[in-house]
Design a binder for these strands. Structure first.
Lengths: 239, 239
DNA sequence: GTATGCGCTAATGTATACATCAATGCATAC
DNA sequence: GTATGCATTGATGTATACATTAGCGCATAC
């Protein structure tokens, strides 16, 4: 899941550093490595089979992405999640993603291939909406939603914008995996994604931007509501 | 110049990796290492006196910041500058910095200390404006302008926003150092900074955001105009 | 009983040797 | 004369040994 293209677009035969990086990133995203978990280099050497050099490089990369906190002579830990960090994340996404949505809307207007892809995803969202709630429904939704997000990212022309949004995705995914799935939220989120698709396919950049802004605002609200009811597994309440 | 606080705020006894990183960053910023310059690890080992491990770490960090292009089994080069990359940079800044300006304006409204700092800088800008054009004037201006920018960054509460803007600064600085100083542009830029200070000190977040957006638009226009007249030393024209 | 200081341990920071692969040039075949 | 293939060279990728330092526990003095 969340098979975002590994940093550099081209398919190079992955180095061990890449492997370790990707594996740790996934485990942090999935919450298998809980926030605060110490990541000793030696322990990672045992776990991954690589030597310290690639492990170090992976840790440094993760630190640059904000997924790992690195204290100079002390070591690395999986970065903690605070209420403030969640707010910061969503505020920042609310700044970036509407802009990306505009660029994607323009790109889709000019590229039939891309428009077809979004049309197909819209159909998937509609089908999920019609389906009765079930164990697999929310999973199916997040699957499509992930592909939708990556399509937006891929359609973002500005490289800085594209890379920055891509770098934030693991943080969002982790948040989702650290808290319980809220079926009601899924319901609403499906509708929001339909709105986004419609605006994008209509070529209405303003509407598309507005719809993703609304989506983000609702997501944040739900997260905070659920945290108030009962904190998820690994969240600090320091913020 | 551009003495931005080194990544992590606290003053740790710097590791060699930090030293090499900072030194290379400065040299790239200043244009002493021209875009496209190959950065062989061995060569850097000779130059810096450090061993390959910290050199590698520095290179990887610079690559993450976009100052170095890293090709897997081939090596590192100082990243190239294209017209498209300049446009992307300024478009992205135009998205981020008005938002930062709003946060700084609110912060200054609530913090007399901070307001004093901006008042002092406004006075410096005003003094520079009154001064006759000279060799040292533009340098004095960029000096204050740098401090101004870092003050804005420091007053930005959202951590993602703050870090991202900070990471873009070396790119901007490099651009400035790769092209010739345009006295006319300095003239106008001083006035724009006065506008920004005034809006910020008046607590008018909208006006502050608008003024920095205008400043960025004008800067970009000047850069493109000057590039059209005669490309600076190290610019590609691939974009 | 508490606090201070010493020494041990284990971690990160660094240096360097080895493995592997891309680029380059030359020799050879056509 | 051109193109193909191989060997050489030098680079990066990796492993590991060494240096240094932060954390921690225990013993001892008060």
């Amino acid at each position: 899941m969340t098979t975002g293209p590994e940093s550099s677009g081209l398919a190079t035969d992955l180095s061990k550093a890449d492997l370790v990086h990707r594996r740790l990133k996934e485990e942090i995203e999935l919450g298998e490595l809980a926030p605060g978990t110490p990541l000793s280099e030696l322990w990672l050497v045992e776990r991954t089979g690589a030597s310290r050099t690639p492990v170090r490089e992976a840790l440094r990369r993760l630190a640059a992405e904000g997924l790992v906190d690195l204290v100079p002579r002390q070591g690395a830990r999986v970065s903690r999640v605070s209420l403030q960090s969640v707010r910061d994340l969503f505020d920042f996404r609310s700044l970036l993603e509407p802009a990306a949505m505009r660029q994607a809307t323009e790109a889709a207007a000019a590229d039939p291939e891309l428009r077809r892809a979004f049309t197909a995803m819209r159909a998937e969202f509609a089908r999920i909406q019609r389906r009765a709630p079930s164990q697999t429904r929310s999973r199916a939704f997040y699957d499509v939603a992930d592909r939708f997000d990556w399509a937006i990212i891929g359609a973002t022309r500005n490289e800085h914008l594209r890379r920055t949004i891509a770098e934030l995705r693991p943080h969002t995914a982790r948040l989702r995996n650290l808290s319980h799935v809220d079926p009601q939220r899924v319901e609403v989120s499906v509708a929001e994604h339909l709105d986004m698709c419609d605006a994008l396919l209509a070529g209405d950049a303003d509407a598309a931007a507005a719809s993703i802004a609304e989506h983000l605002a609702q997501s944040l609200r739900t997260i905070f509501r659920n945290l108030a009811r009962g904190p998820g597994e690994g969240l600090d309440l320091l913020g």
